[in-house]
Every structure is written in C-alpha cells, then in structure tokens.
C-alpha cells in the first residue's frame, strides 16, 4: 500500500458483478483489456473473492497486473473501471469486528462509504499470498 504516513490513498475503483471495489493503485503494475485467453497466472476476481452467485457477468473485463515484488506473476480480471483518485484515510472505515476475520480471508480490508453505497477495498497482494499458499500446498500434496 502507499506510504501510511500520508493522509490520502490513491485508489483504483471498479466493479465486479455489480459490487463496487477499490484497490491501492500502488499495487497495480499495469492494465490491459481481456482478450479471452486463459493463463495460469490469470484469475477472475469473483472467483478469488468467493462470489456465490452462479453467473457473474462482466461488461468490459479488464486485466490488472499486480506488483508482486519477485513473487510469481499475478493478474486479476476485474470489470468496469470507474475512477482513479486520492481518498482521505479518514473516509476509510474498517470492517466491523464481527466480520473482519472473514473479510480478510477474502483480501478485503476496508470500506469506503460513498453516499448510500459502499466500496470494498481489496488488497491484491494479500490475495496473492493466499493464492501462493494454496498452490504450494497443492504442489506439496502432489509430490508427497
């Protein structure tokens, strides 16, 4: 994430399945249109977040490449990008204590209320960490 000493965080806001999300733009290494080609390092965000809806429609699927700092490559497909901007840290709320552990398991760490709606802030590097652990566990199982 951006320097926590700052009072603002640059966020990339987007939607998936009608739900609004945001991520620290500092985690984004690049953005490209999704051409339909599958790849081992490419994941649909609704699957990463555990959407239980049977079908999640994407109007304009877009690939976000995540800065991985030497880890394996990690790219995520999001839907419509809405905005990139600086938001005050004071406007960001934490998840209620009751939900926070579950939210963090899905990489969700905060909420940006915008009028009646809420934007859920996702930490892609946390998702990558969990994804990497899953892959490692699977690999260990296969070789043992």
């Amino acid at each position: 994430m951006s320097d926590p000493g700052e009072n603002h965080l640059n966020l990339l806001l987007f939607t998936v399945g009608g739900v609004r999300f945001g991520c620290d733009s500092g985690q984004v290494a690049g953005i490209a249109d999704f051409t339909g080609a599958a790849a081992e390092d490419l994941f649909w965000l609704h699957e990463e977040l555990g959407f239980q809806a049977p079908v999640v429609a994407y109007r304009s699927p877009t690939i976000v490449s995540i800065r991985t700092e030497g880890e394996r490559p990690y790219r995520v497909i999001i839907d419509t990008m809405e905005e990139i901007g600086a938001f005050s840290l004071r406007d960001i709320r934490l998840f209620p204590a009751l939900l926070e552990p579950l939210a963090l398991q899905k990489g969700l760490w905060g909420i940006l209320p915008r009028g009646e709606k809420m934007v859920f802030l996702v930490d892609f590097q946390l998702l990558l960490k969990m994804r990497a652990k899953q892959i490692d566990d699977k690999w260990r199982k296969e070789i043992s």
Binding site: G50, L99, L102, P113
Partner: peptide
Amino acid sequence: SWVPGLPVYLPGLIN
C-alpha cells in the same frame, strides 16, 4: 450492502 464470501447468515453491512 452485500459482501462477497460471507456465510449465508451474514448478508452484509449497513451504514
């Protein structure tokens, strides 16, 4: 506001 990945008995958040 629905939050992905929560169990069915936690339908989401209110402001």
